[in-house]
Design a protein around this nucleic acid. Structure first.
Lengths: 116, 116
DNA sequence: TTAATATCTGAACAGATGCTCATATGTTAA
DNA sequence: TTAACATATGAGCATCTGTTCAGATATTAA
């Protein structure tokens, strides 16, 4: 007969405790997850790769990606919240750019891993 | 009256073309996205952080995360497919470990970004 | 072989996600 | 102010995702 109790067994109690002690804070794990989520989407990743070439406006990005300007704007919002991109206004046009070099560093390491 | 046509305007044709030329291949964008997706989940990220301390079996990880062994197994499968983790068998127990240092490098850069 | 343990796998379901559509905001020029 | 353009935002919806549950596979010992 199956039980409704927690079935978790622990083979190596010491290792579990060691992991608990070494783990980052809940807040940092949460922030890290949100950060990687920002990179874990084709549209957002393409936006970041495009901006690597220089600043672009929302219209340009929409044309580049082949999706609506609204969709791009939604994604840029998330990238802004993660401070991955920043913008400057020139009249009615907003020019987006990469905030810093972190994205490039991350993509570089990731490509290293993928290309083995 | 609204139109059903594509409303995409292109302000800077040259920049869009430049981005198209510089963008990675479809396959690499796809792989990169899958790779970052693997990091973009609390459970998987915690597994990777735990394994940073040394190898652990599925039971240990389930206890550490507070989720079922089945759930851990599903996540480990994804991490294996991304070659982020590897395992070795010792009798009926599978010990998982980080495949290489790439995860640590990525987390380091990400934390740098988050902590500003 | 049989029983016990450790892990894996497929189905199903709740919650998250990314898009489109309609609309709102903000800027510039007339 | 009004009109036109560029971008942002909220709602709604189809799809994706992570979990649990039930059952399968694999190893070891009796």
């Amino acid at each position: 007969m199956p039980t409704d109790q927690c079935l978790c067994r622990i083979i190596h109690q010491d290792r579990v405790e060691k992991a608990h002690q070494a783990i980052l804070s809940v807040q940092e794990i949460d922030q890290l997850t949100l950060f990687f989520k920002a990179l874990a989407d084709q549209s957002r990743l393409k936006i970041l790769m495009a901006l690597k070439q220089g600043e672009m406006c929302v219209c340009d990005l929409a044309a580049f990606l082949g999706i609506s300007e609204s969709a791009v704007s939604h994604q840029l919002r998330m990238l802004r919240q993660m401070t991955l991109v920043a913008n400057r206004r020139e009249g009615p046009v907003l020019y987006y750019r990469l905030t810093d070099d972190h994205v490039n560093q991350l993509v570089h390491v990731a490509l290293d891993h993928i290309r083995e």
